[in-house]
Design a protein around this nucleic acid. Sequence first.
DNA 1: CTTGCTCTCTACTCATGAGTCGATAAAACT
DNA 2: AGTTTTATCGACTCATGAGTAGAGAGCAAG
Lengths: 208, 208
Amino acid sequence: MGRPLASAHDIATPERVLEAAERAFAAVGFGAAKLADIAHRAGIRRPSLLYHFGTKEALYTRTVERCFARLGEALTEAMTAAGDFPTRLDRTVARYVEFLDAEPQLARIVLRELLDEQGPGRQILQQQLVPLLDIIERLVAQLGSDVVRPDVPVRAAVLQVGSDALLRAAAGPLREPLWGPADHSQRLARLLLLLRDETPPSSSRSSP
Amino acid sequence: MGRPLASAHDIATPERVLEAAERAFAAVGFGAAKLADIAHRAGIRRPSLLYHFGTKEALYTRTVERCFARLGEALTEAMTAAGDFPTRLDRTVARYVEFLDAEPQLARIVLRELLDEQGPGRQILQQQLVPLLDIIERLVAQLGSDVVRPDVPVRAAVLQVGSDALLRAAAGPLREPLWGPADHSQRLARLLLLLRDETPPSSSRSSP
DNA sequence: CTTGCTCTCTACTCATGAGTCGATAAAACT
DNA sequence: AGTTTTATCGACTCATGAGTAGAGAGCAAG
């Protein structure tokens, strides 16, 4: 054999490996994931994988960084939409939840990194999340000074909504039986943050 | 050597092993945890550990079951306190959060089980959590019919508060910089569930 | 004191999975 | 055409960690 071959659908091999790695690490964690599995799922054998990434740890770090990068993108993209505060809040929460629900592997990896004592994730998480929370707090102060409840701790509220979405996405088959429909998160965020709740654009109430 | 010896502080060996196992599995997960480490932390060698538990998987299952049992106890105990609805809500949330903060290993293991595709945890989680949520919903309907917001999805709200506490406890060193003081959870739960918020007994407001 | 039971250890086996080496072959230059 | 570069794989090495075997030490009962 020889060159790329680019097998299947002609996506570059390293990219396919990263996708397979994301699934594997998300499913069973760093320790239990096997390079041979990942390689096979990417359509190559283990040595070829190691040719591209050198070592298992390196592959893992790359995977984690890729996850956090995409998550960061999704978050900031969702936040920078135009509109008044309630609209932006709805949009951000909705997009964030949808994004995580669509990529549960990502949610799982982020969570795993939060749990692991070592791992590259803790630092990345701190470095990305702290400034993001600062931005949100400033945003709330500027945009929402008249519609936001003055008595709510903003950071805590944001983290609560965020944690919920993360766990919800990571819960896999338990998602529906426990959490139910997705737009509940949006509703709860409104209830937490907004002074008055003029029932959001499209949503369900539990008891009319 | 020979009999128990009961080393250190005379706690039964299997119990010491379970404690060590809980720490280890919480810190690095099932795959990466090493029986030799666990054994040493419990004051014995690996074969002695295997004498008591037979296999690594068995030890893990025992550890997980022990965790869920304790968590279940803590939850139901907190919920069955007397008082009107707001008081009970405050107490339950406060005790739950304190409990998890005091035993972060437990929170980590529960989370890990939520993440793992196989593992005994998913099933236990479903079996314990679904009925618990039903109980809570019934409780809210009975006790809080006049003080609880009628427009809030109870299950979702409870899960949101619960997820937050779990992640908060599992976050280790990131807990303070991100989440801040513990009583915020209590405050958010009040804001979510109660119709009017007469500022809970002892709490801090972020902007007076 | 001897027999038996419980618990512990040291010293193995054995499977598994990460990383290396050398061969090979398709592409990409020259 | 010939040479180099890039990517792939089969067949190794080697470390590590789970599980096993067997011996021995303390304790209890007869």
